[in-house]
Design a protein around this nucleic acid. Structure first.
Length: 643
RNA sequence: GGCGGUGUAGCUCAGUCGGUUAGAGCAUACGGCUCAUAUCCGUAGUGUCGGGGGUUCAAAUCCCUCCACCGCCA
């Protein structure tokens, strides 16, 4: 009974399309969800946090084909990228759903069938403007040109009317029920301004929705009519139920459904606030409690887009600042719902000022003083005076306000409140000047009280920032000598006095080093310069190990006839001799290469170049298009492993 | 074109069931401290509260109108 009555909380992000490179927008949504989920856990909820990937559709099919891959192979690669980004960002999701998983596909088919049996899904004919070169129907809102054609926004080609047999969902019959639902649940969509948009959209009338295609191979087939595959939204939205067990783990599903929060970007509001509830009503599944739409991040005041080439890659920031600074910035800068502007100047400014100067420096000064004046251990302290008491009492109100803000997903305000307290502690130190008391031995107990008070406040601060900055919070926690994990304590149990005397305080390293804009920009532009194609994703050591890199000795080298760049090399890789073709003839003559030792990759799939099979590849630096080979200067036998 | 929103200090914004000299952070200037990451603390400002008109003893706040920008829809 006790176990069953535990408060539960289910939060989702959208599933991200695998025909996309992970960028700051994905990171933003997922970071919000992660912070809310961490907070809810502290608040005593049993939490399920779901994210994942949307992997079907023509675009995936097409990009995979362009790269000589099967769709699932492309999906696997991109899924790896998402997962490694989530890891780098400290995202603690409970499950990662992929729409290509059998559990999902089956669930979607079950729901589809159910609606079909009910008559909410029926077969009809879809008529639309179809762009032949993009193999895609144009969206309805594209204006009609002269001559009864529309212009495809992607390729600018003319698109004529095409019709196709497909299944429709009877969205039109849900207008009234939806409007009733919105009226009874005005907080279903947040922020409220978005709710207005939804209502006015539904008021204007709903058309039935085409939910299958016969032209898309890469999708979930309709079970009893496999020529049709289930189209994007009907497939994707259902991840929210299949991801927690619908159709495969009824117990889990019952435990967490309905979802408390579907966190989404404002661009997909209609699908979540109109179509999704309608699908669920039809399937007789309870509706989610809220759909929270957040804003977009602009880059230097302009919208980020692939075509503009100004899409912000989180890795460049992560490398310099770590996850917590990015998490903090994205959540502190704007309330969920409004758009924000990301500029490197703004980012550095806030991170230096709030994290390095305010919090980081506070941690540093308190811990250093405890180290210097007490050898890291405060044992005995004076009674509280009025000023000390004020700092302790302020904790109580801060705790309450911070809790309330987190509860309302006003994370920016929660942080703002925490920072007011940080300032109070700084002020407390300035007023009490412990460094002066330290010179007078008779003041030791008083000095102890002051530093105890500051450290106790700091412990609370670390706890409060944990949902947003888990790594740094834990660092401070450990510095303070806490032995239990920070998230083992419930929010309601956090007390000022939970910082106990006698704990062994460690010598700190600055947790948020200041970064100069100059240095950041320099590094950023260097990265751009070197990796023009795009920043590479992080790989694991296991992935790295799959490369068989060896020392090779060049035995023979000759020019490839009819080319001026290629050399044919014969190399010794210890166990065997290999033939390799390398584009280095303009930089190196065959004569100077013979006898040299260098690094080659030996398990690269052989390729035929100019009719010659190349059984591996030599590694070389690239400087303005010219190869620069790193030769071994030490004597090392051919075949030695390089790592 | 329809509906909704926004316009307040150099910047980002808070404040509107009408009511004392309109606020915060950042930036700027000056002062203090030296435990601390050149960090921290204090002081000082500056605003025709988008324009105009109206209601009222009293308007950033309510009403009308105009302008600018944004969102959703067509």
């Amino acid at each position: 009974m006790e176990e069953n009555s535990k408060k539960r909380f289910y939060i989702t992000t959208p599933i991200y399309y695998v025909n996309d490179v992970p960028h700051i927008g994905h990171a933003y949504t997922t970071i919000i969800a992660d912070s809310i989920s961490r907070f809810k856990k502290l608040a005593g909820y049993e939490v399920f946090f779901l994210t994942g990937t949307d992997e079907h559709g023509q675009k995936v099919e097409k990009s995979a084909a362009e790269r000589g891959l099967k769709p699932i192979e492309l999906a696997d690669i991109v899924v790896g990228r998402f997962k490694s980004l989530w890891k780098a960002l400290n995202i603690n999701n409970d499950y990662f759903i992929r729409t290509t998983q059998p559990i999902h596909e089956k669930g979607v088919q079950i729901i589809f069938q159910k609606l079909k049996d009910k008559g909410d899904i029926y077969k009809g004919v879809y008529k639309g403007y179809y762009c032949v070169s993009c193999e895609n129907y144009l969206s309805e809102d594209i204006p009609l040109e002269e001559g009864g054609v529309k212009i495809c926004p992607d390729c600018k080609e003319k698109a004529g009317v095409v019709s196709e047999e497909c299944y429709f969902f009877k969205l039109s019959s849900y207008q009234k029920i939806l409007l009733d639902f919105y009226e009874k649940n005005p907080a279903f969509v947040r922020p409220p301004s978005r709710m207005n948009e939804v209502v006015s959209f539904v008021r204007h009338g709903l058309k039935d929705l085409s939910i299958t295609r016969t032209t898309v191979e890469w999708g979930i087939p309709v079970a009893d009519d496999p020529g049709h595959s289930i189209y994007v939204w009907f497939d994707a939205l259902n991840n929210y139920v299949t991801g927690i067990g619908y159709g495969w783990n009824q117990e889990l599903f019952k435990k967490f459904w309905p979802a408390d929060v579907h966190l989404i970007g404002k661009d997909i509001l209609r699908f979540h606030a109109v179509f999704w509830p309608a699908f669920l009503m039809a399937a007789e599944i309870p509706l989610p409690r809220t759909v929270v739409g957040h804003g977009w991040w602009l880059k230097d005041e302009t919208k980020m887009s692939k075509s503009r080439g100004n899409v912000l890659d989180p890795h460049s920031i992560l490398n310099t600042f770590g996850a917590d600074s990015l998490r903090y910035f994205l959540l502190r800068e704007i309330p969920i719902g409004l758009d924000g502007n990301f500029s490197h100047e703004g980012f550095i400014h806030r991170v230096n000022s709030d994290l390095a100067n305010d919090l980081g420096n506070l941690v540093q000064r308190i811990l250093t003083m405890i180290g210097n004046y007490f050898g890291g251990r405060i044992e005995e302290i004076d009674k509280e005076n009025e000023r000390d008491k004020r700092l302790r009492l302020e904790f109580n109100s801060v705790k309450e306000i911070v809790f309330r803000h987190y509860e309302n997903y006003a994370i920016n305000k929660a942080l703002e409140e925490i920072w007011i307290y940080i300032n109070s502690v700084n002020k407390y130190l300035a007023e009490n000047e412990p460094w002066k008391l330290a010179k007078d031995k008779s003041q030791k107990m008083r000095l102890g009280r002051i530093l105890y008070q500051a450290a106790a406040a700091l412990r609370a601060i670390a706890y409060f920032v944990f949902p947003v900055m888990p790594e740094s919070a834990e660092k401070i926690w450990n510095y303070l000598g806490e032995e239990n994990p920070i998230n083992r304590e419930f929010f309601s149990d956090v007390q000022f006095e939970n910082f106990v005397l006698g704990q062994h305080i460690k010598v700190p390293e600055p947790i948020f080093p200041r970064v100069k804009l100059k240095d950041f920009i320099k590094e950023k532009t260097q990265n751009v310069h070197h990796g023009k194609e795009e920043k590479m994703e992080t790989i694991t050591f296991d992935e790295f190990k799959r490369l068989d890199l060896r020392v090779a000795e060049i035995l023979k080298a000759e020019r490839v006839e009819g080319t001026d760049k290629l050399l044919k090399l014969e190399v010794d890789i210890g166990t065997e001799r290999r033939q390799m073709v390398a584009g280095i003839a303009q930089e190196y003559s065959p004569e100077e290469l013979v006898g040299k030792k260098l690094t080659v990759i030996t398990n690269l799939k052989p390729a035929v170049i100019r009719g010659i099979e190349s059984q591996g590849m030599i590694l070389a630096g690239e400087l303005e298009g010219k190869a620069v080979i790193p030769f071994f200067t030490e004597d090392i036998p051919a075949g030695s492993k390089v790592r």
